[in-house]
Structure formats: C-alpha cells, structure tokens
C-alpha cells in the first residue's frame, strides 16, 4: 500500500477514537500495521487467528478501550464464529479490511469476492466499501460512530484507488 494511503488509514483510526488495534496482517496492508505498531496512540495486539482477535477486542472494549479489528478478507471468514458471539452480546467493534479479491485485485483471490460481502450481510454487519483514498478518514469516522451508537460490529472495506 502506498505510504500516503496507509497514513490516511492510521490517521482516520485515530480521529475515529480508536486506541486499541488487534490484527493479523494482509500483505496489502503491511504498511498500516507497521505504522500502528510504532504509534503510541494505539495498543496493538498481533494474534494467531482472527477469532482470537475478536475475543481480545471484546475484552478490551469491556475495559473501556475503543478497539478495531484489522484483518484480511480471509480473516473475516475465520472470525465469523467469534463475531457472531459479539453480535449476541452486542459489542461495538470496527472491522477494517483490505478488500482482497475485489475487482481490480491483480492476484487471484476471487473466493473473497464471492464470500466477503455476502458474509457481512448474513452476519448483519453493516459495512461501507471505500474506493477512493480521500474517503478513507470519513468512512472510518462514520463507521465507528455507528458501531458505538448501534452497539454492534461495523466494517470498512478498502478497495480500488483507496487500496492500490
């Protein structure tokens, strides 16, 4: 990811009030993870799978943090059980996902185009697809606001010019 776009993501998370980030990296988001781990505004926890990550984020929210789960599209599929349980407890959590497999992704990741948005819909996780880097910060702010107001997980998917 271009540094300027990664900076938009990290600055957007800060402006949205996120102070606790849990992640398992996607290659296209490597720069975002590097910046977050070096930024004292965040406590970053790297995890072994995304279901574990969702549970850590839940605990952190209960303790007063504003968490974000920053994962790959494959990780969304791994995290579905934990996210379903977060739904049951009604825990606000922002998911930030580089939308691999969307049209424009140069690698073969069609499986994620097939499953990502249907999975979010089935799980009743509202989401916004962001195509332009100028819209990253606004989307993060809007989605975190709604996660807190609706007390549920909400997702931001980055694709197109915002990601590539």
């Amino acid at each position: 990811m271009e540094i300027a776009k990664a900076q938009e993501v990290v600055q957007g998370l800060k402006e949205a009030g996120i102070n606790f980030a849990v992640g398992l990296p996607d290659s296209q988001f490597h720069e975002v993870y590097e910046m977050i781990t070096q930024d004292p505004a965040f406590k970053y926890v790297g995890v072994g799978n995304e279901g574990e990550g969702a549970a850590i984020a839940m605990g952190a929210w209960c303790g007063g943090k504003k968490p974000a789960l920053i994962i790959a599209t494959s990780g969304l599929l791994v995290a579905t059980f934990s996210l379903a349980r977060l739904h049951l407890k009604e825990i606000p959590l922002m998911l930030v996902i580089p939308y691999r497999g969307d049209l424009g992704d140069p690698r073969w990741m069609g499986i994620y185009k097939k499953y990502t948005e249907p999975m979010l819909n089935v799980m009743d996780i509202p989401y916004r697809v962001v195509n332009r880097s100028a819209e990253i910060k606004g989307a993060l702010k809007d989605c975190q606001m709604c996660a807190e107001a609706w007390i549920k997980p909400v997702a931001v998917l980055l694709t197109g010019e915002a990601l590539w």
Partner: peptide, 24 residues
C-alpha cells in the same frame, strides 16, 4: 464477571480486559 464466553474466547477476552486495565 464476564460469563458464558463462548468457544475459544475465554482466555483471549480476559487478555483484552487485562490489557485495557493493566492495574487491575
């Protein structure tokens, strides 16, 4: 307490609480 935390989520949830409240 935080109860009935489901499959595989108990220790990670406790870790999240512990990291959020390091003095507790």
């Amino acid at each position: 307490s935080l109860t009935s935390v489901s499959l595989g989520m108990c220790t990670p949830a406790a870790l999240g609480v512990a990291l959020a409240l390091p003095h507790r």
